[in-house]
Structures are given as C-alpha cells and as structure tokens.
Amino acid sequence: MSDTKTFVYMNRKAPYGTVYALESLEVVLIGAAFEQNVKLVFMDDGVYQLTKNQDTDGIGMKNFSKTYSALGDYDVNQIYVCEQSLKDRGLTLDDLQELTYEDEDDDWAEKSSIHLVSRDQIAEIVGSADVLLNF
C-alpha cells in the first residue's frame, strides 16, 4: 500500500490524574481502523500507563489499562518505552504488563509488542512520523 502513512503517538502523561492517556488510547483504537503504520511511544510519566496490576476500584474510575492488551488484535504492535523514564521512576520492564501480538508473517507466533528504547531512538521514531500526535 503506497498510501500507508506512519502515525506516531507520543504518550507523556500518567493515567487517571488527567484525561490524556485515555484520550490517546481511544484515538489509537479509532485510528487503527485505517490500517496505517502505527507506533506508540511512552516516555516521561507516560510509562505509568503500562504498569501491571492497576486497580482503580478505590478511585472509582474505569481501569482502562486492560485495553492495552487488545492493541495486538488491532494490529498496533510497535510499542516503544523510554528506558530512562522507567529508571527515573524506579521502574523496570518487569513492572509493565506484557503486550503481545501474533505475527502473521511468522506462522502467527506470539511476540512482544514492547521495545525499550533510548532517547536517541525516540528521536528517530519521531523523525519517521508522517503524522505525529501528542498526548
């Protein structure tokens, strides 16, 4: 498809305190219908969006962290997490949920969608964007 564009979503906010994270997720899901090349970047407080074991019963809000594991079904499988942002927050890859997709070109093997990246790599990803959306 020659008209495929690269969409990069920059996610920099923690979930629940503000509406950015949920808004971004909804736009990603809606945008997935257009079958474009989609990359999600999580940096700064955005890395909190992907933590596992989120339990929102106490704050009376919808726990939308479960929805991230549906992204693979939507062919959104390029998820880049800033390693330094995790480190600054005392977090590691083990603190994040596992997000996977089935690789059509590799006999539907289940693969991880998450890639730890440096700030330099994020600069490259941003540079590759035809459309850049910031949340």
Binding site: Y16, Y48, T51, Q54, D55, D57, G58, I59
Partner: peptide, 10 residues
C-alpha cells in the same frame, strides 16, 4: 493508597 493501587504501584 487508592491512588498508588490505581497506578499499579505497590
């Protein structure tokens, strides 16, 4: 604690 738990922080 409620806000910690919501964010998956133990």
């Amino acid at each position: 604690g409620e806000d910690l738990r919501a964010r998956g922080l133990s």
